[in-house]
Design a protein around this nucleic acid. Structure first.
Length: 139
DNA sequence: CTGCTGATTGTTTAG
DNA sequence: CTAAACAATCAGCAG
């Protein structure tokens, strides 16, 4: 009940979600914004970042277990794969634990989003205070 | 040496 | 509603 999973499967939610490509070309080449490090940070625009999903939270815990059970495994990518399969095998009750966490995060994110929209409607023209880009001295 | 890619699913966003 | 993109992580490979 607490888990408002959005209409459950009734709407099917993205029935196939581009199922046509799912099997054929897995061109999942995401642009990825990790190209830059500190410089050029104006790309994100003030938009609230997306909170980690339940899957990610599960990953955090699963990672450790996976490494213990699979000390041979190295890349985390493989973990993700294994995690994905296990994730599907997990029961709703088990996943609910993580869903609950994600739900709370989303609630918090919602507030940030509301402000973002509000500001956007008010005027996207925001002063960029992100002047400091490479202020790296220290070491 | 340095830096991006890849893989997982879920959630988010804008039209 | 829909489709696409993006969220973390970390090691491996390429130039």
């Amino acid at each position: 009940m607490v888990l408002r999973v959005r209409t459950t499967e009734g709407t099917k939610r993205l029935a196939r979600l581009s199922a046509s490509d799912e099997e054929g070309t897995m061109v999942r080449s995401v642009k990825k914004s990790k190209a830059n490090k500190k410089k050029s940070n104006k790309i994100d625009a003030k938009k609230p970042k997306k909170p980690p999903t339940a899957f990610f939270y599960f990953l955090e815990d699963f990672r450790k277990e996976f490494q213990e059970q699979n000390p041979d495994v190295k890349s985390m990518r493989h973990v993700g794969k294994a995690c994905g399969e296990k994730w599907k095998t997990m029961t709703y009750e088990e996943k609910v634990q993580y869903y609950d966490i994600a739900t709370e995060k989303r609630a918090e994110f919602d507030s940030a989003m509301a402000e973002y929209i509000k500001r956007k409607e008010s005027g996207e023209e925001s002063e960029d205070e992100e002047t400091e880009d490479d202020l790296e001295f220290g070491e």
